[in-house]
Amino acid sequence: MQQFSATDAALSGFRLVREHLKTVGVWAILMTVASLIVSIATIKLAGPQMATMMELSAEPSSDPQATLKAMEGMGPLFLFSGLYSLVVYSVLLTGVNRLVLRPRDGASAYLRLGADELRQAAVLFLVNLILLGVYFALVIVVAIIAGIGVAIGGSAIGVALGVLLGLAAVAALVFVAIRLSFAGALTFDTGKISIRGSWDLTKGRFWPLLGSYFVATVLALVVYLLLVVIIAVVGAALGGGIAAMGDAFNPDMTSLATFFTPAGIVRTLFSGVLSILVLLIVFAPAPTIYAQLKGRDLSDTFG
Rank of each mutant, 00 (worst) to 15 (best):
M74A: 08
T254P: 01
V273F: 12
W199L: 15
V24L: 05
V91H: 02
I289V: 06
L269E: 10
I140C: 10
D105N: 13
G82C: 10
I145H: 02
T187Y: 07
V159Y: 15
S271P: 06
G204E: 11
Y213E: 10
S39A: 14
G272D: 09
A216I: 00
I195L: 15
W199E: 04
A58N: 13
L56D: 00
R179H: 11
P287M: 04
F125C: 04
G204M: 02
V26P: 06
L68T: 11
A9H: 04
A232K: 02
Q49I: 13
S155F: 14
K44P: 06
A115Y: 09
F214Y: 13
L111C: 05
T254V: 08
K192T: 14
A70H: 06
A286V: 11
I40M: 11
D297H: 04
A115R: 15
R112V: 13
D200Q: 15
L77Q: 15
S255N: 10
V266D: 01
G272F: 01
I140L: 13
L227N: 03
I265R: 05
A291L: 09
V88G: 06
M53T: 09
A177I: 10
G153H: 06
A41C: 10
V141N: 09
P208F: 08
A46N: 00
P208N: 06
L113A: 09
G162V: 07
F283K: 00
A70D: 02
L56R: 04
L280K: 01
L201D: 03
Q3F: 10
L16M: 09
Y213W: 13
L277E: 05
S181M: 05
S85V: 14
M50I: 15
V266H: 07
L11T: 05
L210K: 10
A232E: 03
R196P: 00
E72A: 14
L11F: 11
F283R: 03
